[in-house]
């Protein structure tokens, strides 16, 4: 009956209760470490949430500015990586020969430690902006390619036979059948890739850049215990960027492929 009320009660109420309980446990744990056990550098290990939140507030404009830089670079990297991944998936779906040639290298590329690759890329491009974009693209192309390939292959055999019976051109088969059928796969890949792109961008920033969340994270770490709440607020900011990137992909998915079974509101409408 009251759909919205139900949604509120069934989805958000439990989440809110859990969240509050977790925060309370955290605060209690933090107090316990600091006052009862009197652990060394207790606040670096488990800081008071309210202190982190207030640091977040004081530090807000800087976090917003640097967070935006990180997000923009991660976004460009994701765009680059997703485009490359999609193209690779299309090539691999079109020819077995291409798949056999490219797939082992695509897998191998993911075995290279990013931590080692980042300085190499920086050494080549000599630009922190481009290094971030390239690394973010590098770690995103694989999940996108893999999921997109699965999506392109997900078209039902009968659906392909239907196209064959119409004597459809290969281009039409892709445009009218394989691409639409691949959208759930593509977005599955993008939802994995988007937070990875943020992580990749922050990683490069930690190794040396002029701006970004990673840079202020590192700076606060250097200043030591006096900046512990500031440091934690940058970590939270990084996490929020990841969540934001994921949610963006979810919203895009709803817009681009609203016909998927999980989005159907009235399954029993017969």
């Amino acid at each position: 009956m009251n759909g919205f009320g139900n949604l509120l009660r069934l989805r958000f109420l439990p989440a809110a209760v859990w969240g509050l309980a977790l925060l309370a446990i955290w605060e209690a744990g933090s107090w316990f470490l600091l006052k009862v056990l009197q652990v060394r550098m207790a606040q670096s290990k488990l800081p008071y949430i309210h202190e982190v939140v207030s640091a977040f507030g004081r530090y807000g404009s800087t976090l917003l500015k640097e967070g935006w830089v990180t997000l923009a670079n991660a976004g460009l990297g994701l765009l680059l990586g997703a485009t490359a991944g999609t193209l690779l998936a299309v090539l691999m779906s079109a020819s077995q020969w291409m798949e056999r040639l490219a797939f082992p290298y695509a897998v191998a590329s993911q075995m290279v430690p990013i931590l080692g690759l980042a300085p190499i890329v920086y050494g080549i491009v000599r630009d922190d902006q481009w290094a971030r974009i390239i690394i973010a693209g590098y770690i995103t192309f694989f999940p996108v390619a893999l999921n997109m390939l699965r999506g392109l292959r997900s078209a039902h055999p009968s659906a392909l036979e239907l196209m064959r019976s119409y004597a459809a051109k290969p281009w039409s088969v892709y445009w009218k059948l394989r691409f639409p059928a691949s959208l759930p796969g593509l977005f599955g890949g993008l939802k994995i890739a988007a937070p990875l792109a943020v992580t990749g961008a922050i990683l490069v920033e930690l190794m040396g850049a002029r701006n970004g969340v990673g840079v202020i994270m590192l700076r606060n770490l250097y200043y030591g215990p006096s900046h512990v709440y500031m440091f934690w607020s940058t970590v939270v900011a990084g996490a929020l960027l990841g969540v934001l990137s994921y949610l963006t992909m979810s919203v895009l998915e709803r817009l681009a492929a609203p016909w998927q079974p999980e989005f159907r509101t009235k399954g029993g409408d017969r």
Partner: peptide, 12 residues
């Protein structure tokens, strides 16, 4: 024109 055992309609 072919009609299969399943409708094979495109969901999108």
């Amino acid at each position: 024109g072919i009609v299969f055992q399943n409708p094979v309609l495109y969901d999108w």
